[in-house]
Design a protein around this nucleic acid. Structure first.
Lengths: 141, 141
DNA sequence: TTAATAAAAGATTTTTTTGTCTTTTATTTT
DNA sequence: AAAATAAAAGACAAAAAAATCTTTTATTAA
């Protein structure tokens, strides 16, 4: 479903949402250690998210990554599409060039129904709200 | 979700289910042309499925691939797991080593529902029955 | 204002996946 | 029995994804 880079991206964003803020930034080192993720690879991913304004960063001492209030209003759908491209949620599960409700592949109905569930959550839940739930339910990232 | 090889495998098996039989075998050339899939790559995939008794084959003139009656009773779940390994349907969508209903990752609930629907169909519908539906509804493969 | 810090950027390497080609083996038709 | 056919097997090449390392730039704290 998601590339390795995308999985790291989602987890990193959620980590920042829970553990960092404008006043308490987190560096690549901290995030990669906390999530047990390759440091330099994660750095590239965070850069890409930062360039696309999905996370915020500042250089220099006491710098690092964090989510601004605006960043917290974005959704994981945007994060996912930033890393894996815009077609993640609507490309055919069998790779057929045309596959839709009108012209469905043999697995379309099931694949669509259940992928939409995931898509819906990622699209409609703000990252900030998701972070609150994670803290409340003490979920692992 | 599925690797490229796995997508080709599913489509090839369905093609054989619809267009081939013990009396009317299909060669790699025919299948790759019909599905527009790389010939030699498909050959490898069909070999692997054959070794695992998910499809049948015979060498020599008028040889080729087909599904025996027994093959038609198998499911696409077996095909998928033959190519992509046994964890496709139960590994964490974020790649966490532990992720379950008791210890869920932040996306577990949605991801689980998404995959289980698909999993259920692939697990409970015999390839032979699926092929009949494809013919009845004239679906593309 | 200098040294230290940390992200940004660029280049490179490694690994995995995808795709191709050649040789061998089994089977069948002539 | 010989020639032709088609899968099986093995080796190889190309492309993509994942991971690493080095240099540069911006910022801040001493």
């Amino acid at each position: 479903m998601f590339s390795q880079a995308c999985k790291y991206a989602i987890r990193a964003v959620l980590y920042l949402a829970v553990h960092a803020s404008e006043g308490k930034k987190a560096g690549v080192k901290e995030v990669s250690a906390a999530l047990d993720v390759p440091k330099y690879f994660l750095a590239k991913i965070l850069q890409q998210l930062s360039r696309n304004h999905l996370i915020s960063s500042t250089k220099g001492p006491s710098g690092g990554f964090y989510l601004s209030e605006q960043n917290r209003e974005a959704t994981l759908k945007e994060v996912v599409e930033c890393i894996d491209g815009p077609d993640v949620f609507n490309s055919c599960i069998l790779g057929l060039p045309v596959c839709s409700s009108e012209n469905p592949c043999p697995l379309h109905v099931q694949a669509f129904a259940y992928r939409e569930g995931l898509h819906y959550q990622l699209k409609h839940q703000a990252i900030g709200d998701l972070a609150k739930r994670i803290e409340r339910e003490e979920q692992k990232i």
